[in-house]
Design a protein around this nucleic acid. Structure first.
Length: 576
RNA sequence: GACUCAGUAGCUCAGCUGGUAGAGCAACAGACUCUUAAUCUGUGGGUCCAGGGUUCGAUCCCCUGCUGGGUCACCA
């Protein structure tokens, strides 16, 4: 990288780096720096009347208030921030005051990592601080951080451009309050769930992400290719069919936190890769699973937030069990006034027309139309956790027929804040019924439904050996984290949400410039002046080009001997 | 994919129905031994997203593109 690609502040930091080395200070020391305390516990444990406590802490320098021979600074460690106080004559007890005057005041910058030793005290203004007696540079930072200042909980000059925050999440985590907390909660939610399932004797497992047949859900998959086998493989859209194979194999219960991939749209509730937790427990049914889910969610909310209530946007959601339960047809009746019970496909098509639903076309079967009506008129209205039960059979090819009505299935979805959070079944374990349902999906696919499921013959073979009665559930983890942390976009709960790749401006290589006879040291100046491609130089007046690059030479005080116009003309003449 | 808004200093943002740019913080130089958005004095820092067009002249007006946000559509 050329100096010309750097900002003024970056150049200064690199010069400071050199100066530190010249002073014999290693800006990137290898040795362990022993830390005895953290910002948080120092504040929590401080007592004004206790004897002085010596501490050794380390962190990133995040602010400096220099007042001549004494200074205050902020250190940010993994737990938070703490103020340090540095008095020149206590840091530098001898004649040489360079560590304070030169290193601390001039060569250190916001963003550098330092380690300090000293004692804890309370300042006249009442802030618990560390009185520094030793200071050591642990890592020099070469890029200036955005400066966000806080006063009374209000952020000033907040770093909030979503594009920059997501592309450079590391910066977001450093400077913006609350970002790390969201991800700590995310981690805790996973931990609480693992504890809950493990306590019940269920086993965490891992199943293939590269699948020959993308089963277990309806979605467009990502396709990849395995060279040795010379076969196309799919990134999984769900892990359901593999987990059921394990129930066939004799596990009491299995669960997986599964990264799934769906090649579909992106918005505030969808990311192409997302995390789903799936759990399957033998001998249970979907009614048991509703009770179990209520307990689980209540526990998560309590452990993560200390209360069952959480505020999301304008809504306050209460995860206290039990939750309302209503069948899908009752929900539609309640919200639209139409009772679809025992209605024929044609009658339902007419209802769709009456409801002015334009998206419906002739490829839609009965089940899909019912699902559309629900999605349009009901789904968004369930803010508090609500179980929607007994889905039409056409939409649920992996679900057992309802024990009282063979047009329906034993399925529920849990709606929270107007969105689906979980989806669960009494799992279909009749191998012949399952085969028939797959055949139905195949027909839908032939009719033009590009989301219909593929047939997985090995899964059918497993079912033929016998799968005990089992209930399974899938929970959208990203949405769960959004709910538990009060976030309204999925990007806020994913460290690195999917973005378009950053594009670099096209550049011709150095060798191409050298071929024209451009001296090596002048190439960066051409780039700085905006000539990244030979083509950029081709049409330009040699006089202007010469002036442009000589201007850069002068402006940045590079001290190069300027080329003559004839030389520049010669370069341009060689462009093919 | 459609519509819409935005892109100006390291960060947050100003910029008058067109005359090549300003503030605060950050940086640099200086003052200051209990400050805390420290303060005070001074200084530097910009391909105004990119490329076309209109114009004597474009950060500003028009077109195209890129990137992001929002809404809708599609989709768990």
């Amino acid at each position: 990288m050329s100096l010309l690609d750097l900002s003024e502040q970056e150049i200064l930091r690199r010069e400071s780096l050199k100066e530190l080395r010249a002073m014999g200070i290693d800006p990137y020391p290898a040795a362990e720096y022993v830390v005895t305390d953290y910002s948080q516990n120092i504040r929590d444990e401080f007592k004004d009347d206790a004897p002085r406590k010596e501490v050794s802490i380390a962190g990133r320098l995040m602010g400096r208030r220099v007042m001549g021979k004494a200074s205050f600074a902020e250190i940010q460690d993994s737990k938070g921030r703490i103020q340090i106080y540095i008095a020149r004559d206590e840091l530098c007890t001898g004649e040489n005051k360079d560590l304070y005057n030169v290193v601390f005041k001039r060569l250190l910058d916001i963003g550098d990592f330092i380690g300090v030793k000293g004692y804890v005290f309370r300042t006249q203004m009442g802030e618990i601080s560390v009185h520094v007696s030793e200071l050591k540079l642990l890592c020099k930072s070469l890029k200036p951080l955005p400066i966000v200042k806080y006063k009374d909980g209000v952020a000033y000059d907040k770093f909030e451009d979503p594009e920059l925050r997501y592309r450079q999440r590391y910066v977001d985590l450093i400077v913006n309050d609350g970002v790390k907390e969201t991800f700590l909660k995310r981690s805790k939610i996973f931990r609480v769930m693992r504890d809950f399932f493990d306590h019940n004797g269920y086993t965490e497992v891992e199943t293939p992400i590269l699948q020959p047949i993308p089963g277990g859900a309806s979605a467009r998959p990502f396709i990849t290719h395995h060279n040795t086998l010379d076969v196309d493989l799919y990134l999984r859209i769900a892990c359901e069919l593999y987990l059921k194979r394990l129930i066939v194999g004799g596990f009491e219960g299995v669960y997986e936190f599964s990264k799934n991939f769906r090649n579909e749209g992106m918005d505030r509730t969808h990311n192409p890769e997302f995390t789903c937790m799936e759990l399957y427990v033998q001998y249970k049914d979907y009614k048991w699973m509703m009770n179990y889910t209520e307990q689980l969610l209540e526990k998560i909310a309590t452990e993560v937030n200390g209360t069952t209530k959480v505020k999301v946007g304008d809504n306050e959601i209460d995860f206290k069990a039990p939750y309302k339960r209503i069948t899908m047809l009752d929900a539609i009746k309640e919200k639209t006034g139409y009772d679809l019970t025992d209605k024929s496909e044609e009658e339902i098509r007419q209802v769709c027309k009456d409801l002015k639903m334009e998206a419906i076309d002739n490829t839609f079967g009965k089940g899909k139309m019912i699902d559309e009506i629900f999605g349009e008129f009901c789904e968004g209205t369930y803010i508090q956790p609500t179980f929607i039960t007994d889905y039409p059979i056409e939409m649920s090819p992996l679900t057992k027929k309802h024990r009282d009505n063979d047009k329906l299935t034993e399925r529920f979805e849990l709606m929270v804040n107007g969105k689906e959070l979980a989806n669960a079944y009494s799992e279909l374990n009749d191998p012949l019924d399952q085969e028939g349902r797959f055949q139905d999906q195949l027909r839908l696919s032939e009719k033009g439904d590009d989301e219909a499921m593929f047939i997985d013959q090995d899964f059918l073979r497993a079912l033929q050996y016998g799968m005990p009665p089992v209930s399974g559930i899938g929970i959208g983890m990203d949405r769960l984290v959004m709910l538990m942390t009060g976030q309204t976009t999925i990007q806020e709960v994913l460290f690195f949400p999917q973005m378009r790749p950053e594009k670099m401006a096209p550049k011709d290589s150095d060798s191409k410039f050298l071929e024209l006879g451009v001296p090596n040291e002048w190439i960066p100046l051409l780039r700085k002046a905006g000539y990244n491609l030979l083509a950029d130089m081709k049409e330009v007046n040699p006089q202007k080009l010469q002036m442009d690059i000589c201007g850069v030479n002068k402006k940045f005080k590079l001290g190069l001997t300027n080329p003559k116009v004839e030389e520049v003309t010669d370069w341009i003449s060689k462009i093919g």
